[in-house]
Design a protein around this nucleic acid. Structure first.
Lengths: 228, 228, 228, 228
DNA sequence: GATGAATGAGACTTCATTCAT
DNA sequence: CATGAATGAAGTCTCATTCAT
């Protein structure tokens, strides 16, 4: 297990509260994580349908049969890959938001830190991002995971929205809805990263996009008469 | 084989859309369009790999064998779906840009019209957009169509960039590169539409997003001290 | 038996070649010959199952539909190819045998001329021979054409056997049966040619094998104490 | 893929037959042999292209999928059938030749034993012979197996040729080349058997042909003035 | 008459899944 | 507990054959 993967894992540990009780359960959970890591890695090389259960088994160094003890189906393995990824990013995002809240940081500071956190996570998880562009997004859609995500990360999203809400209340920005601010943020972050991946620019430092994104949101949504 | 390949070429991987001369060729082209329409429609219902050639044949009301006279492979059918979509949006987009050029319209006017055109096209092609979200994007990636797109629409993109270029020169906006302006525009348009599709909001009037997108670009990229 | 079948019958499975009466019939017969020639040629390049009706149609410069007016099926085309080949060799063979008979030529002379005739024909019909090695033999077997051949060429074979018969009667050779002499002859001719084709030696002068073949038969079958 | 290819290699296109070490490997090898036997049997009933993978699977009492674990393709199954047959006959032939060498047997004795061995093997492998006549020969040709055969059995052929060579040196026979003696032998053996199979005479004792074949070679190639 | 667009049965092959060991 | 041999449904693609023009 390489460095990046381990980081990835520790990040995911802060997700939804599943603390496996027994020894067996812990073992199973560890094996599941290994399978997920292998499956994710394979996905950055070739599309979902070119990856067979046999491939995943081989990459994870388990037998095919055991994979079916760990997951009910191939689809579920990739559901788990997706959840692993989204859990991970939501965890770091939520951590950042909580820190901002605790420090009573100003709107632009919060925004900057949030955007920076997202971009940094994406850089550390290029395999996931690449796979995401290739397939995970579509799979996510097919598997109805967006609904699941809303339930699963509702609290985190609400905390993020609270930041936007107070910026709206303070008249720093104006926008038809809080959700829209989040959407714009997501659109910009994902859109810029997406372009680089599509262009094969895999070495760029995506965090450099943070100031521009913040500027677009902060000044683009600033009320007509200026912030002052 | 050579012959077959040549025939397919124009439809599947071809250059700018040609107007076929002969009667036969026109029939063939019409049938290809029918298949493309059927395939696109199916894709808004279920993912690429859940759609079989039989399904497409049935939907298009042709036999399986004939589909293979129209297209060399299943992959090529979806390549054609993608090209049909991108050709279509690029055509209307280019038309808008040319009109703006001809009228020497100002930067914000251009921007507004461009964004509006894109959103309007997306509304009129919801099936395509839905399929795109589901799979076309990933397919596009897998099939290496982004490179093709750059060649195919290079001229149109350059014309669009020229608008941003002159805005940069006039000091109305500042940005590290012209391409970045285009990327931001694309990210915002696509990101907002994407959210609605994911949320199942298929009835919304997406053109209502135009002013906000324009504002984000125009004011978000406006030079520090204002335009004056 | 419907009309179409009757028409085909004479060409595909028929008895001795008839001289078609009407203009139409003559035209059809000519077209059939053209198709046969094209099909035979294709067979020297690739195996039967890699040759499609479309290929034959293109090579013969007819439409697919018309091929089905000339022959009831693909199989029948190749039946006709086989019969064309066997008719041709049997014709020259029979001519040689008749000439020998007429001239009251001696056994070895007859043998030499017969063997020479066969080898010469094979050289002139290398495409057929190559196709034969590749597929025609197997097709012939599958289509039960050996029985047909026996009926079709019975008379010619009997004339050839008469030569061997008289050699047996004269005590020049001894053999359990006349047919065996023919079989040995066929085995040697076909076996030597076959080896060269398999070895890719397509330029050799096969008629050079004639003396050796004759010697094997004449001396190999000569009675123990010599002919005297 | 690499792994699968390697596994298949030994069975389908491999060098001299190996004795697999592990239990698994032995099982696999046994299953391959069963498939080969089933495929060979089917081929004596109907031609190659009328035999589907499903048919072979059913006859061998395996699933279709498992056949593809045993062999990479249908073609490879029949390559294996051919190699199985040729390996088998070459093995008994080589054994006979070695015995003759060891005993310093005379030319005619050697010849007789070699011919007898070939004919006896053919009687014991009628299904193979029938299939061979029907298709294997043509397949062999299409698959370029004659080249392979030359490499694979080169040593055995050289040992056989050595017998002919010494007969030539001793002046017992004269012939333009050693290979030609082998070709004549092959032509006679194969030609006579072929005739019986074509005629449907499947019950005949082919070994009865041995003396005649030997006589044709020995006396037909004997030098002009006699051996003394 | 002659064409070739259109058909659809069937071939080969893959791979998610199961279950005896 | 863990394995991987074995399964067979389903996918893509081909091509002999037909029939409206």
């Amino acid at each position: 297990m390489d460095d990046a993967t381990r980081k990835h894992h520790s990040a995911a540990a802060g997700g939804p509260p599943e603390t496996p009780a027994g020894r067996k359960e812990r073992e199973l959970a560890r094996h599941r994580r290994e399978v997920i890591a292998a499956a994710e890695k394979l996905l950055s090389d070739r599309p979902y349908h070119a990856i067979s259960i046999q491939d995943i088994a081989q990459a994870a160094e388990f037998s095919v049969g055991y994979l079916y003890k760990l997951f009910p189906s191939k689809e579920d393995i990739y559901k788990a890959v997706i959840l692993h990824g989204t859990d991970s990013i939501m965890a770091v995002l939520d951590e950042t938001v909580r820190a901002c809240e605790a420090e009573h940081a100003g709107f632009e500071t919060c925004l900057t830190r949030v955007v920076h956190t997202m971009l940094a996570w994406m850089m550390e998880n290029r395999a996931y991002i690449q796979g995401s562009l290739r397939d995970l997004e579509a799979l996510s859609f097919s598997m109805g995971m967006h609904q699941l995500a809303r339930r699963r990360y509702g609290a985190a999203f609400r905390r993020l929205d609270a930041i936007f809400q107070s910026a709206l209340r303070e008249g720093r920005i104006e926008c038809e809805s809080v959700e829209m601010v989040g959407s714009l943020l997501g659109a910009l972050v994902w859109g810029l990263v997406r372009k680089d991946v599509v262009d094969g620019e895999t070495e760029k430092d995506w965090t450099r996009y943070a100031p521009m994104i913040v500027r677009l949101i902060a000044r683009g949504l600033a009320p007509e008469g200026g912030t002052r």
